[in-house]
Write a protein that binds this DNA or RNA. Sequence first.
RNA 1: GGGCGGUUAGCUCAGCUGGUAGAGCACCGGCUUUACACGCCGGCUGUCACAGGUUCGAGUCCUGUACCGCCCACCA
Length: 859
Amino acid sequence: MVGRDTLSCDTVTIPLNLPDKPALEGLEAKWRTRWDADGTYRFDRTRDRAEVYAIDTPPPTVSGSLHVGHVFSYTHTDVIARFQRMRGRAVFYPMGWDDNGLPTERRVQNFFGVKCDPSLPYVAGFEPPATPGKQAIPVSRPNFIELCIRLTEADERAFEDLWRQLGLSVDWSHTYATIGPRAQRISQAAFLRLLARGGAYQLEAPTLWDVDFRTAVAQAELEDREQPGAYHRLRFATEDGTGGVEIETTRPELLPACVALVAHPDDERYRPLFGTTVVTPLFGVKVPVVAHALAEPDRGSGIAMICTFGDITDVTWWRELSLPVRAVIQTNGSLRPVEWGTPGWESVDPAGAQAAYDQMAGLYVSKARGPVVELLRASGALIGEPRPITHAVKFYEKGDRPLEIVTSRQWFIRTMEHREALLARGRELAWYPDYMRGRLENWINGLSGDWCVSRQRFFGVPFPLWYPVGPDGQIDYAHPIAPGEARLPIDPSTDVPDGYRADQRGQPGGFVGDPDVMDTWATSSLTPQIAGGWLEDDDLFARVFPMDLRPQGHDIIRTWLFSTVLRAHLEANTLPWTHAAVSGWVLDPDRKKMSKSKGNVVTPKGLLDEHGSDGVRYWAASARPGTDTSFDPAQMKVGRRLAIKLLNASRFALLQTEPVGAITEPLDRGMLTALARLVDDATAQMEDYDYARVLERTERFFWSFCDDYLELVKARRYGDFTPEGAASANSAMRVALSVLLRLFAPYLPFVTEEVWSWWQPGSVHRAAWPAGAEVAREISGEDAGAAVVLEQTQAALAEVRRVRSLQKRGSKSVIAAAVLPSACAGLAQQDFVAALHIQALSFADVAEPVLTFAEEPTA
RNA sequence: GGGCGGUUAGCUCAGCUGGUAGAGCACCGGCUUUACACGCCGGCUGUCACAGGUUCGAGUCCUGUACCGCCCACCA
């Protein structure tokens, strides 16, 4: 243990260095430099796992800017880190930078005027133009990633600077980037291991598709948005033409992709139709009427058309009812060309179908709706007019147009078969607050398919695979070629598989690289492994994994938390960490999440400059774990005032160093008894991650310490009575100060370190977290009787002050006679009388103090 | 539709295992007190969302309702 574990004040040898006029200004700059130079927060990697506290820090997205929400939640983590460090743990507190993914891709494109083209070979020493040209220059993926790292370096420096100003006790020698070589290597190795064990597979299947980004997306990346739409009632004729059935749809443009109608098996209205065939309007396609339990009798007309594919339900029906595919949507969202009358596109009227379809082909799906509705209306198949509605439509969370479902070849990680095990992991994990566990369970129970991890993007971690090309030029996806782990990371678009030559790329008998990159969560789900040195530094990894803490926001439980639990479960058969601390959001005064735009108006830097880092941290740390919190500069001012008070009260406590000695006075012993109890409570609550409560209670004690206790002992410590009395007060004050500084240290690292440096060796952040027993030892055990004396004295003080104030007397007024309720008779008379300038004190059966003031000296 | 959280003083929020409502801010009044005017003392402010129930006693436990927020859902 680095810190001192004794409180004996008389052992302090460093010379007192009290400033005349202490101030907060300049403390951030002073101490961050000092901590850096002293390696105060360096991780001690010689310590055993049991002595380590490892944190899986969320890597902020470097292509954005830090906002108030970051300052808020990272402060929570830092408070915990500092507490654990003072508890004697070696804190592994790395920092990551998230530069993998679409936001960075866009920024690199715009900033350098380039675009990623994985078909190009790597060019060593490539330099982008000084100013981006109109025409984007195509570059290879490795070159693109190099540019990304170059661009984000500047952002990372700015972020690091802000974090240091905020006082995060991160070990800056442990950083990683999610697109860096280490993250790529680990992402690829983890994938290959999964593949080798059968935990990953590729499949040609309908998947959720963003038509703008032209990539598959995963269930976790979806969001619902309310969109205007309309119910269209369409009439399908029976095969013999004598009857018909009416369905309702919001997507009439998918009519050419209709493969069946479906109703609930128990629906009496449609039961006679099951097994029969109806004919689609306009296109004349014969489709069966089928039954499936997912069809809801009370929705629309109770019978729906199944298209390939309009939504996820269509996929379910298609799969479970073994229906044919009649896909019309292309990867760019437009309707593909179709030759009606050819296999798969049979029609009772091919010419009519072609004429109708030609008015839609090539149009983006939503644009095709107008023409098809017109045709339906003209044909009489549209019953009544469309009825406008608003309904939820699925979007890619970063996308602008509704998701479509397109059939394509994708990589999946098996998740469905692990659902029970993952739910058990969720129960095994300690959650703060506990109810957040429900979010994970909710999500796992709602999973509808395996995790689609491939993306048809250019920037990201590539799949480390090639495929043989047959003599006929066909790509053999069934037999992927994987590199040995020692070769990782690789980029199959430029690297060549063992046993092949570069000139065999794309040639019959040669190979091709997998063109896709991984979902960013496929990398982010491995942050404990990346930060902990998996596959690279076994010694480090053994000391930090599984980690202790995952701090994160509640909005990414279904993505980051879930996927990290999944990967650790699959790879290591363990939880990735034992605790998850979920922080809330910062809300603006309208009770909405502080948005980027508003967040940029209030920059974190500006806040730290204005209120001081300790002040801002105070506001953040006042919020209970998981609770959404208002952005409140007033609280930051309160925090700043607390820091200033700490400076001044400390100065007072240290102002007079002599004499010191045994703590004998009941008032002093009572104060330390209360403090010992506070420390025990605070420790228990900190262990339970309830840092906000500890701050509140420590603060409450501290203000009372200042305004009551210090005022009461002032005369005695100045030597107005006996040397023994003064010694008792001086010693008690120093014990209390030492303890209070350490209790506040996780919250207010700058001011506590400053004060600590006046009179103590080393850093307060390496000092031992106080224990109640240590405080009690100073007075040879808790003194319950003295605690009562303190309580009575404080209560009497408040009462006399109140009466005095109501009588509009100043605090200097001399009280010739004070009569107090008998219940106060046990108070510390000498200190009490001196602090209130009481000449004669007596007790009687009165409800409140009766004060007789001496004549005011005439001014 | 399912689930979770919230509803306490004008504002922001504490109130842990049930025992006569709390803090800070704001507001008002007082104090040139030798650690601090970036300070100190005091005052004002509440049918603890609503309705039932359990209990000697409920802000605190149970049931239901309303509103706010969030998460999830196979919304034809």
